[in-house]
Lab assay of single mutants.
Amino acid sequence: SEIVVAMYDFQATEAHDLRLERGQEYIILEKNDLHWWRARDKYGSEGYIPSNYVTGKK
């Protein structure tokens, strides 16, 4: 599975969105859409994140 790191904070506005915290790692579950990826955080929460807010883990 692909691990990404959040470059920016993202506040979830929709129920299906996942909040991003800058510097935290997330697991990508689905990339069915170019701009919104389904991800899981370290607490096990899942939701959609803006793909341009994250970068591949170095």
Rank of each mutant, 00 (worst) to 15 (best):
D33S: 11
E14T: 14
G47A: 02
T13M: 12
I49H: 01
D17M: 15
V4G: 03
H16S: 13
V4P: 00
A39W: 03
E14S: 15
Y53N: 04
L29A: 00
T13K: 13
E30C: 12
Y43H: 10
K58Y: 13
H16E: 11
H16L: 08
E25H: 08
E21V: 13
A15C: 14
L18I: 06
E30R: 04
Y53R: 07
G56Y: 13
A12V: 08
E2V: 11
W36L: 06
D41I: 02
L20E: 00
I27M: 11
K42H: 07
E30K: 04
Y8I: 09
E21T: 10
A12K: 09
N52G: 12
A12F: 04
T55F: 08
A6M: 02
L29T: 05
Y8H: 10
R19H: 12
Q11A: 13
S51D: 03
W37I: 04
W36G: 05
S45P: 01
R22F: 08
A39R: 01
E21K: 08
G44S: 04
D9Y: 05
S1R: 14
V4Y: 11
I49L: 07
G47S: 01
K31C: 10
Y8L: 10
E25W: 10
G47D: 00
G56P: 15
A6H: 02
N32S: 14
R19F: 08
E21S: 07
R19T: 15
S51F: 05
K31N: 07
E14V: 09
K31T: 06
I3V: 12
W37H: 03
A15N: 10
K58L: 14
D17F: 15
G23S: 04
T55C: 14
S45T: 12
L18P: 02
I49C: 04
Y48C: 14
R38I: 12
L18Y: 00
T13C: 15
W36R: 11
Q24D: 07
I28A: 00
D33I: 05
I27V: 12
D9H: 05
I28C: 03
K57M: 12
D17N: 15
L34R: 11
V4I: 04
A39F: 04
E14H: 14
Y26P: 00
Y8D: 07
D9C: 06
F10N: 03
T55E: 12
A39P: 00
G23M: 05
E30G: 06
E30Y: 07
E14G: 15
R22Q: 10
N52S: 15
W37A: 02
I28D: 01
L34V: 12
S1Y: 15
E25F: 11
I27C: 10
Q11M: 14
D17K: 15
S1F: 15
G23D: 07
T55H: 09
W36M: 07
S45Q: 15
R22A: 14
V54T: 05
F10K: 08
P50D: 06
Q24H: 11
Y48K: 07
M7F: 05
A15I: 12
A15L: 12
Y43S: 08
N32C: 15
E25L: 10
L29E: 00
K42C: 07
D41T: 01
Y48S: 05
A39D: 02
I27H: 08
A15F: 09
K31E: 03
D41N: 07
E25K: 08
L18H: 01
A39Q: 02
P50L: 05
S45M: 14
A6Q: 01
F10E: 01
W36P: 00
A6N: 03
L34A: 14
M7H: 05
K31D: 06
E46W: 03
A6I: 02
D33P: 03
I49F: 06
G56M: 13
W37G: 00
Y53I: 06
R19C: 15
A39M: 02
G23H: 06
G56V: 14
L18E: 01
V5E: 06
F10L: 08
D33F: 08
R40E: 03
Y48A: 04
E14W: 09
Y53V: 06
K31S: 07
N32K: 13
I3A: 06
A12C: 10
D9E: 06
K58M: 13
S45A: 14
R19K: 12
Y53Q: 06
H16I: 08
R22T: 10
I27T: 11
R19E: 10
S1G: 14
L29G: 00
S1V: 15
N52V: 09
E21A: 06
A39H: 01
Y26F: 03
V54L: 05
R38N: 04
P50Y: 05
V4N: 02
D33N: 12
K58I: 14
T13R: 13
W37P: 02
I28V: 11
Q11L: 13
G56Q: 14
Y8T: 06
T13H: 11
S45D: 13
R19G: 12
G47L: 01
S1D: 13
R38V: 11
G47M: 00
K31G: 04
S45C: 15
E30F: 06
D33V: 05
Y26V: 04
E30A: 09
E2M: 13
Y26E: 00
G56I: 14
A12G: 15
D9K: 03
L20R: 00
G44M: 06
L20D: 00
V4C: 10
D41F: 01
S51C: 13
G23E: 05
H35M: 11
I3D: 02
T55N: 08
D41M: 01
G23F: 07
G47P: 00
K58D: 14
E46R: 01
H35D: 10
E30Q: 08
Y43A: 09
S1L: 15
M7Y: 05
G47I: 02
I3M: 08
R19N: 15
T55L: 08
W37Q: 02
R22P: 05
R38E: 03
M7D: 06
W36T: 07
F10A: 03
I27P: 00
R40P: 02
L29V: 09
R40M: 11
I49G: 02
V54Q: 01
R40L: 08
L34C: 15
K58Q: 13
N32G: 12
E46A: 04
E14N: 15
K42W: 05
L34E: 15
I27G: 02
I27F: 09
E2Y: 13
I3F: 08
R22L: 08
S45R: 15
T13W: 10
Q11C: 14
T13Q: 13
R38G: 03
I28M: 02
A12M: 06
D9T: 05
D41Q: 01
E46I: 09
L34D: 14
Y48W: 13
Q24E: 15
Y48Q: 07
N32A: 12
W37S: 01
Y43G: 07
R22D: 04
E46C: 06
N32F: 11
R22I: 12
L20G: 01
E2W: 14
Q11W: 13
L29Q: 03
L29R: 01
E2F: 14
S51L: 04
R40F: 04
L29C: 05
Y26T: 01
K57R: 11
D33T: 10
K57E: 10
I28T: 01
Y43R: 06
D9M: 04
Q11V: 14
R38T: 06
K31Y: 06
S51H: 07
I49A: 01
L20H: 00
E14C: 15
K58V: 13
L34P: 15
L29S: 02
Y8P: 00
F10H: 07
E46Q: 06
T55A: 09
R22N: 05
P50F: 05
Q24N: 09
G23C: 12
D33A: 07
K58A: 13
G23V: 02
E14L: 12
K57Y: 10
K57Q: 11
N52I: 10
Q11P: 14
V4T: 03
E30P: 00
D33R: 07
I49R: 00
D9N: 10
G44V: 02
D41R: 00
A6G: 03
H35Q: 10
L18K: 00
Y26M: 01
R40Q: 08
E46M: 06
L34T: 13
E14P: 04
A6K: 01
H16V: 08
S1M: 15
S51I: 05
R38C: 13
E30N: 10
R19S: 15
D17Y: 15
F10G: 01
M7S: 05
G44Q: 04
W36F: 08
V4L: 06
